[in-house]
């Protein structure tokens, strides 16, 4: 398609030199490229997590005679945590569906429920961390624990910032309603939130489940 446009442009302007950019000025409505740009940000974020997974994959077995996953992890707690994040994903989906129907109150309610599930996830994770640190399994104890806290902590930090973002957007919606800009922002947060759930699939599989099998 671009080649065609270029040829036409080169033909119409009677210069012999070829033109290597699209000449027709098309309109760029506000935010029309936001979702693609945000998707590319998420992909770069995915690379960060891939590096942290690689570090954990390399160092995950180096216990330095310290505690191993079997001594530390409680799979029932992890299962509860996973369901919290999964439930928050579906409730965010409901928020998007009610947003499309322009139901402000219902959208706010679903966003609030999503926030509560997210808060529960962070709460359970922090409890787990506190329990581990109390038992002496601190990030300084072994390479396994350093990489564990870095990977899981980075994910938790993402969820925490997602929660800050969620509250910000709830205030925005309460003030200005479901205007076009707010819909776009909610769409970005939806991609961010679902993406974090995808990363969590990797975490509970490779860190917790495979850790228990070691």
């Amino acid at each position: 398609m671009t080649v065609q446009t270029m040829n036409i442009a080169a033909g119409s302007s009677e210069t012999s030199q070829p033109v290597f950019h699209v000449l027709d000025e098309h309109a760029h409505p506000e935010g029309y490229s936001t979702s693609l740009g945000f998707w590319i940000y998420l992909m770069s974020d995915c690379l960060i997590f891939a590096m942290l997974f690689a570090v954990f994959g390399v160092l995950g077995g180096n216990y330095a005679a310290g505690p191993a996953p079997k001594d530390l992890f409680d799979l029932k707690l992890v299962a509860v945590n996973t369901s919290m994040l999964l439930l928050s994903s579906i409730t965010y989906g409901f928020a998007m569906l009610t947003m499309e129907k322009s139901q402000v109150r219902a959208t706010q309610m679903w966003l609030a429920i999503t926030g509560l599930f997210g808060l529960a996830f962070i709460g359970i994770e922090l409890t787990e961390f506190a329990h581990m640190i109390h038992e002496g399994a601190t990030p300084q104890r072994s390479a396994f624990l350093s990489s564990f806290f870095t990977l899981v902590g980075t994910h938790g930090l993402h969820v925490s910032f997602g929660l800050v973002w969620l509250v910000t957007l709830m205030v925005q919606v309460a003030r200005y309603g479901l205007i076009e800009a707010n819909r776009r922002r909610l769409m970005c947060l939806s991609m961010f939130w679902h993406f974090l759930d995808v990363v969590w699939i990797g975490v509970f599989t490779f860190v917790y489940l495979l850790g228990m099998l070691r």
Binding site: L75, V78, A79, S83, L86, S89, I90, G93, F94, F204
Partner: peptide, 20 residues
Amino acid sequence: YLIGFGLSVVLTAIPFWLVM
């Protein structure tokens, strides 16, 4: 959304059950 959620629950529950 409901199909995705249903599948996710099953696909999460089975590996947890296998390991536990």
